[in-house]
Computed example of a mutant assay.
Amino acid sequence: MLAESRQTLPPEGVLPGSLHYEQKPDGFRAIVFARADLVRVQSRQGSDLTPAFPDIAQAAALVGEDLVLDAELVVPHEGRLHFGELQRRARHRGPSAIRAAAERPAYLIVFDVLEAAGTELIARPYRERRARLEDLFASGVLSAPFTLCPATTDRATALDWLDPAWGAAGIEGVVVKGAEQAYHMGKRAWVKVRARTTAEAVICAVTGAATSPSSLLLGRSDASGRLRLIARTTPLPTAARRDLGTRVRPAGPDHPWRGRRFSAGWGSRGELEFDPVHPEIVVEFLADTAVDDGRYRHSVRFLRVREDLTADQLPLLGA
């Protein structure tokens, strides 16, 4: 079951029954089969992640009750749920996967139970599935590295979870579910709201024509003085294209990104076609809190030009 992205929490009555709010951790969605005849960690796309996460597979094999769980696979590091470390774990197999598990243990933040003791539960309402899941933790059937996803019916608490401070810890938003909802496989029947924050960066390159840019490639300098890509914007509105087309200046051959290659999208092997411009215009943008090594994982939204700031007034990346 999937979630539709929204900008704000929905009002009561949008989903069946009263609303329940769950934290959305920054990780890999996973279905875990913990059965006597099958132990498997499966990605949302159906890929077998079991060889990459032998620690989770071993824990699933020891559960002692046949279960199918819906959850988020995470790896904590440096005080937060660290997506980069999770990606590195996912690349290992065999002995190196065992070593990686010892160095960076994974956890499974469980938010749904789809089958228990041989009984399929997907037709049951969310409130019943959640109660069964809580019982599995309370009785000790599930314990570390399994952990229960925080949930609440209090809207004020859910709004607090959307504070960017939670994003810094690896909680990227809130998933909203109706108490009476069954589990609709493959359908976007939940609601997902991402935590968002604003930040500033310099326009360093554009896609499309410089006289009418389609999107912006934004950068910040690090402590070594290197100009690093931190974000790409969503397609610009027509008014912004016209305005920025009169402001940006095509860069010469000495631009630090001249000859660089950037991915066309997160996880994509395609290359992005872009034209470098003089890194002199500071802009403000709206982004979610998924940031890896200073780079925003998802596209950001251009808000405005910061006429009051110059590039050298921005704090160094990582400072």
Rank of each mutant, 00 (worst) to 15 (best):
E115F: 01
F33R: 15
L217N: 05
R269L: 15
A3W: 01
R247I: 04
L49M: 15
H184S: 11
R260G: 08
K24R: 14
D154K: 12
L229K: 07
R258L: 13
V63W: 03
P54N: 08
K192A: 08
V176H: 06
H278N: 12
A116I: 09
H92G: 11
G13T: 04
A189R: 12
A151D: 13
R99N: 13
V291K: 09
D112R: 02
A97F: 09
P235C: 05
A59D: 07
G252F: 03
A144K: 15
T211A: 15
E120K: 14
D135T: 14
A100D: 05
G245N: 03
H255Y: 05
P250M: 05
L309G: 08
D288M: 00
S224V: 12
D288I: 02
A116L: 09
D292R: 09
L142S: 00
L73V: 04
R220H: 01
R269A: 06
R220D: 00
I281R: 00
P235M: 06
D37L: 11
I171L: 12
E180M: 14
Y296K: 11
V191T: 12
R304Q: 10
G270H: 11
W190F: 15
E280D: 14
P164H: 09
L73Y: 03
M185C: 10
I31G: 12
T310K: 10
A30Q: 04
V141W: 04
D37Q: 13
S47I: 03
V14F: 12
A100M: 13
F53Y: 08
R241Q: 12
I203N: 05
Q87K: 11
V277D: 06
R269S: 11
R89P: 00
T234H: 14
G167N: 04
R44T: 05
S224C: 06
V74N: 02
R249S: 09
Q181Y: 03
G219S: 11
A264H: 14
A61G: 15
E115P: 03
L136M: 05
I109C: 05
L73H: 06
L244Q: 02
C149A: 10
V14I: 03
G79D: 00
F137L: 07
E4W: 08
A61L: 11
E271W: 13
V305N: 00
L303R: 10
L133T: 10
R88A: 13
S224T: 13
R260S: 15
L133Y: 02
P25I: 05
Q313Y: 01
D308Q: 13
A223K: 12
P25D: 07
G265I: 05
A100G: 12
I109Y: 04
D135E: 14
P105A: 08
E22L: 01
R91V: 13
G267I: 09
I56M: 14
G208A: 06
P235K: 01
A311D: 07
